[in-house]
Amino acid sequence: MISKNTAYLSRLDHLRFFAALLVAAYHFHGGPALTPSLNPLTVFVKEGEAGVSLFMVLSGFILTIIAHGKELNYRKFVYNRFIRIYPLYLTMIFIAAYASNRTVDFLQFLQLISPLANVGHFMGSIKFPHLWTIAVEFQFYLIFPFFIAFMSRYGARYVLGVVVLAVAVRVLLFVRDTTVIDAAYSTLVGRIDQFCIGMLMAIIFKSRSRLLSSPVALVLSVVGVYLWFVLFSRITHGGYYGDASAYNPIWIISPTIEALAWAGLALAYLQQRWQMPRILDSVLCYLGGISFSMYAWHFPIVQIFGRFTADLEVSWYWLFLFAVLPTIIAVSSLSYYIIEKPFFGFRTSYVKKSSVLSGDTLVESNSKTKVPKLGGVQH
């Protein structure tokens, strides 16, 4: 997706698609890893809700790539994020409210369309409960310009301090309530780590462009994510819905560890120097470009397929690959071109200075110059 504030990194869209794919496969497969497994496919699908964490790490990363070392116009920044998120989000909320059989009253509706939609239990009463993540994202957008300004003033240690403070708050909540799972999973208290680690990942990407460029580093990073999923599933007996999850202290640190694992994988993938076949790169870029619509629409689609294919003697992954996923892509493509893309023309530049990344990649505000994408072909 082309931004008016930074050069295009194609592999970032690859990762966005992967995150959306994980979440969609998780919801279609039917839930968490209540039975521990070492099968990589099973582990990644059963812990696919962690795709949300990857989305949030990538959000912190790309916003910092755009903004670090530059002056932001706060009003224009928030306006751009509103234009990018709210047309589709409001569409989904209106549909959800209309389809909820009058269970959503006017005050609940006002909360749902606000950046505080994840406060309370209103999201559980609508048809698209996964949209709580949009509220958390927008809450981060509101404070990001302050974070980037403080990081420019105090350095990366400021963002590290935010991570430490977030962990400390979760410790206090756990000591008080003997549980911290909901705060860690569905609020900014737990997710702020992941945005901040994405911000730190951007600093590393800009200053050490070859740190994880070896293919061995990419393999090790994938193994690291896999091992974390296996460990987390065994500790909680199935992730968020696991038998040993609600009162497990692992939730104090799990958002941070998960973000570090994803950041390592994402950084290694973005820094790879091998060439990807042009057609594969283009397909993944397209799918990454519609990943927001994929995330928004996948839930009702997988529910419909789940209802009508429950009695079929066909493996879930064949159904997912050849029926569910193509349907999600088709609906998301229509959504992207009708709901999302028409608003892109209203976006504006919100950065006032340009900067050069160390390494091979130029990121320049308000530039129309085509630049080399890290490890990819040119766009």
Rank of each mutant, 00 (worst) to 15 (best):
I2W: 15
T6V: 07
S10H: 10
L12D: 04
A20H: 06
L21P: 02
L21H: 03
V23K: 02
V23E: 06
A25G: 03
Y26Q: 02
H27K: 10
H27D: 08
H29D: 15
H29Y: 13
P32H: 15
L34K: 10
L41F: 12
V45I: 15
E49T: 08
A50D: 10
G51D: 03
V52E: 15
V52P: 05
V52W: 11
F55M: 08
I66Q: 13
G69S: 08
L72T: 06
V78F: 14
Y79S: 06
I83Q: 08
Y86A: 08
P87S: 06
T91D: 10
M92K: 07
A97C: 13
A97V: 12
T103R: 13
V104G: 10
F109V: 03
Q111D: 06
Q111N: 13
L112Q: 04
L116I: 05
A117K: 00
A117T: 01
G120W: 09
G120Y: 15
H121K: 13
F122I: 09
S125V: 13
I126N: 07
F128H: 07
L131A: 03
L131S: 04
T133C: 07
F138K: 00
Q139N: 11
I143E: 06
F144N: 01
I148V: 11
A149D: 04
S152M: 10
G155E: 08
G155T: 07
V164G: 02
V167M: 14
L172A: 12
R176D: 15
T179F: 08
T179K: 12
I181P: 00
Y185I: 00
G190Y: 04
F195K: 00
S214Q: 09
A217C: 11
A217P: 06
L218W: 04
V222F: 15
G224A: 15
G224C: 09
Y226C: 07
W228H: 11
W228V: 00
F229C: 03
F229W: 10
L231W: 14
T236N: 05
H237F: 11
G238L: 08
G238M: 06
Y240G: 01
Y241I: 03
G242H: 09
G242T: 02
D243H: 07
S245D: 02
S245Y: 02
A246E: 14
A246D: 14
I250Q: 10
W251N: 01
I252Q: 03
S254F: 01
I257Q: 07
E258F: 05
L260H: 02
L267C: 07
A268P: 01
Q275V: 03
R278M: 11
R278W: 14
L284K: 01
F292A: 05
M294A: 05
Y295H: 05
P300E: 08
I301S: 09
V302G: 00
G306E: 13
D311M: 14
E313H: 12
V314A: 13
S315C: 11
W316V: 12
Y317Q: 15
Y317H: 11
L319G: 04
L321T: 12
I329S: 10
S332L: 05
S333Q: 11
E340T: 02
G345T: 04
S349F: 04
Y350G: 02
K352T: 13
S355Q: 13
S355M: 10
T361Y: 14
L362N: 09
V363D: 14
N366S: 12
K370S: 12
K370V: 13
K370G: 09
K373D: 13
K373M: 15
L374F: 14
L374T: 05
G375M: 03
G376D: 15
H379N: 13
